[in-house]
Nucleic acid binder design. Structure first.
Lengths: 200, 200
DNA sequence: CCCTGCCGATTGACTGGTCAATCAACGAAG
DNA sequence: CTTCGTTGATTGACCAGTCAATCGGCAGGG
């Protein structure tokens, strides 16, 4: 048969892992579950990845680098600090809308698992916090934001609020309808930016 | 000898578990680690608890019921919505200051582990979100807060921001000095409440 | 006062099951 | 014939939970 699509088995395995990790959680999934879901043999997972951990690492790095790039981009492109933070929030919410399973895995198994995988990637995660903090600091220098809030505090609060809302949807704490995403994002950004404005 | 202190072994085991869970994380601690840390025999853990899980459950329920009570209390006692939210934040920050290891375990292993233990306690956790949401809703009715933010969104954002700050301290993302706690709490409450006020 | 029997607390060796990781073998393509 | 993607049975480590044995305090009978 003429060269069937290379069916990139590596990608196949990564995508299967997303589904299984999202469904059962990382600890509860056996490597055989990933192989079954991908429709490949057990051993092939170890041909492409050195361990079960590395599969998750790969998924995280792939996505987190996109987030870091998006924050940089927002910082360069958008005009006001408020718009910059809005763009960051939009990127994260859209990431969830576009691939909720992957975002669930990233948040639940890495970002919020600071004792296990989060530890490995602490530096990358922190880089995001710092980039957001930089946006806040610039906003303070331009006078758009009040100066008595440490940028890192504001950054952590901003990101923490976003992640908590996503967690709410992921675990059904908050009912989700399509329009809620945009509305929630606007409210969050508005509320936090209003709170960051110089005292009226 | 007159009645040596009963040396309540059950408590001894719970306190040892806090230390070990905080140090190694729940998954990475073996039941024998808990027993060693407590200075008791392996089997005794199973005399007082039906499983390793139940040890963590017990720790969570103990502390979370205090949080729920503190939120109710804040709602009844404090005058303004702003003061109510301030009291809630104070309780959580003080809990961390008083027993950082326990709070680390609660947050890392339960509250943010929505896939494993969080699932078991989702209802209790949600109860806290709802109580905070009620404070926000009351504030909206009295006109102290603007009405266009869903109370549950505000609640989740508020709690998420607090937890993210605590996580920052727990994992050294944010350097912690004694005064920082109170300052961070004030800034967080001020910023979020300012953001929730009717648009200036 | 001592002895005896009871019962809950305490001990730690052991078992059963689970999985991550290995590896020897296979087959298709060049 | 060699190379390399692919297969899946096997191995070896790990650990939660079990359980039979021991300890120690106390009651109550002699």
């Amino acid at each position: 048969m003429a060269q069937a699509p290379p069916a990139d088995k590596r990608r196949l395995i990564l995508d299967a892992a997303i589904r299984v990790f999202a469904r059962q959680g990382f600890h509860a999934t056996r490597v055989s579950d990933i192989a079954d879901e991908a429709g490949v043999a057990y051993g092939l997972v170890y041909h492409y990845f050195s361990s079960k951990d590395e599969v998750l690492n790969e998924l995280f790095i792939e996505r987190w680098s996109l987030l870091l790039a998006a924050i940089e981009e927002a910082d360069k492109t958008a005009a006001s600090p408020r718009q910059k933070l809005g763009a960051v929030a939009t990127f994260i919410f859209d990431s969830y809308r576009h691939d909720p399973e992957l975002m669930k895995v990233i948040i639940v198994e890495v970002t919020r698992a600071a004792n296990s995988f989060g530890k490995t990637h602490l530096e990358q995660i922190q880089r995001a916090y710092e980039s957001i903090a930089k946006i806040v600091a610039d906003g303070q220098e331009s006078g758009a934001f009040r100066g008595d809030v440490a940028p890192m505090f504001a950054s952590m609060s901003f990101y923490g609020a976003i992640e908590q809302l996503l967690s709410g949807w992921i675990f059904g704490t908050i009912p989700a309808s399509a329009s809620d995403f945009d509305q929630a994002r606007d409210l969050l950004v508005t509320t936090i930016c209003d709170g960051l404005e110089p005292r009226g």
